[in-house]
Design a protein around this nucleic acid. Structure first.
Length: 427
RNA sequence: GGGACUAUGGUGAAGUGGUUAUCACAUCGCUCUGUGGCAGCGAGGUCAUGGGUUCGAGUCCCAUUAGUCCCCCCA
């Protein structure tokens, strides 16, 4: 194990080793190609932003700002923070670059690392990665439905078909206040019976009491008034239309009147994708919703928007659990080039390149000198042919082709080797 | 912030308080500068760190650190 002097990766942060890379490439490839088919365009924003941006967007009282944000002061005295999520950054970029004058809605997607100073555990890390989409500038129901539709299709195309989408509407500023008042009234005379956490929530954020996992609280929550009953006409119609479109598109969903999300900026539709057999608690794989007020909170004109983000590490966890087969990265070599002696070694760089250029899947180990160790590697790689290029061959401009299975060898002219090996591989 | 468990070569493990810490696999080297699969030999560890108990600690105790997991919260 590590000596004490050796440095380690920061807590909750990990190296993504070569053998893990195939998952990342696979997921990104699938995700990008799907959302690009739906006219989303990629945007990259800085990993750090002013701390102010996240306080303003996520909300002062949110956990993200209160205890999870990685903030620091720069040498120049600026207050910056590692992004805990990307929606605020995308909106900032949208405003800063005047994207409001482009054709609407703006459909953007992103991928990259996010940072939250939280206690690491399975499926939750301090540096983690999200792939997400945002649709800015369109209030219609079809956008909410399209986003959920896309998320559903994406999980499916990744082979994750055992996920349910839970959906709810949180109303908006015209109807939510009335609901919150009602909720406070409901809990008022039950405060003695709820858990300690919930007593705090009552003051800070009543909504959060709804999804408490304590048995006692769960029991009480069964009788809590559902927010749907308090939605005003517009919100109710919006929600109903979203569900109708999902029905039409045959996307199964589960209504969850207790679903609330951690960020303050959500309005109306909110949703989460969870596995059917809810194994752990860190199992939300995609989460999102509508945030019609975020853009004007951030100084823009009132602009409706919606989006979601997917936790890549959680997708990988799910793929591994399912034993999904993932396409390998790199070539499976069919030919191995063995070189012996100085003259041959000098010429083998060019020879290798000629083979590669001709589309031959070739590998070599130029640093090794003994023919034995090189053949051992060739064998381990399971190549069909080995090219043996030694001192003698280099002088005579020939090369030996060895068929690995039979051990049959043939000496051919060096300038014929590319052509010859291609012909052999075709058979 | 609260809690549980774990820590022995790169990986996975063995190791009733008693010589030089063992095994498998992986890596590299050698046997072996002209032919792979096999074999043999060898290299690599301050047993996480610090303290304590003891004639003696990888083993028992305490602390620290890290990792994993759970609560909280989220993706």
């Amino acid at each position: 194990m590590a000596k004490s002097k050796q440095t380690q990766a920061p807590k909750g942060m990990h190296d993504i080793l070569p053998e893990e890379q195939k998952y990342w490439r696979h997921i990104l490839k699938k995700s990008e190609s799907l959302v690009e088919d739906y006219s989303f365009e990629k945007i990259d924003t800085p990993i750090v932003e002013s701390t102010e941006l996240f306080i303003r967007s996520a909300g002062e009282g949110s956990d993200i700002v209160e205890k999870e944000i990685y903030s620091f002061k720069t040498r120049g005295g600026d207050d910056l923070a590692l992004r805990p999520e990307a929606t605020a950054s995308v909106v900032r970029a949208y405003l800063e670059n005047g994207m409001n004058v482009r054709p609407h809605p703006a459909k953007l997607y992103y991928h990259g690392p996010m940072f939250r100073h939280d206690q690491p555990q399975q499926g939750r890390y301090r540096q983690f990665h999200q792939f997400g989409v945002e649709t800015i500038g369109d209030a219609s129901e079809i956008i909410d439905a399209e986003l959920i539709f896309l998320a559903y299709k994406l999980l499916n195309s990744l082979g994750l078909d055992n996920y349910n989408v839970y959906i709810n509407s949180m109303g908006d500023s015209s109807c939510r206040p009335a609901y919150l008042r009602n909720l406070r009234d409901f809990y008022k005379n039950k405060l003695k019976k709820v858990c300690a956490q919930c007593k705090v929530r009552y003051k800070k954020n009543v909504l959060r009491m709804l999804d408490c996992k304590e048995e006692g609280c769960k029991e009480i929550n069964k009788d809590a008034p559902p927010i749907v009953d308090f939605l005003d006409e517009d919100c109710k119609n919006h929600f109903r239309r979203v569900l109708e479109i999902l029905d039409e598109a045959k996307i199964p969903y589960i209504l969850n009147p207790r679903l609330v999300r951690g960020l303050d900026y959500y309005t109306r539709t909110v949703f989460e994708f969870l596995p059917e057999e809810n194994t752990g608690t860190q199992s939300t794989i995609i989460g999102g919703g509508r945030y019609d007020r975020l853009i004007d909170f951030m100084g823009g004109s009132k602009t409706p928007a919606a989006g979601w983000s997917m936790g890549i590490e959680r997708v990988i966890l799910a793929l591994k659990e399912k034993n999904a087969s993932i396409p390998e990265i790199g070539i499976k070599p069919k030919v191995f080039l063995v070189q012996l002696g100085d003259a041959a070694k000098k010429k083998s760089l060019t020879l290798f390149e000629n083979l590669r250029k001709a589309g031959v899947e070739v590998k070599s180990s130029l640093g090794r000198d003994s023919i034995k160790s090189q053949l051992r590697i060739a064998n381990r790689l399971g190549v069909k042919y080995t090219l043996i290029f030694g001192q003698k061959e280099a002088l005579e401009d020939t090369i030996i082709v060895r068929e690995m299975e039979t051990g049959i060898q043939e000496t051919i002219l060096l300038n014929k080797v590319v052509e010859d090996i291609k012909k052999r591989l075709k058979k």
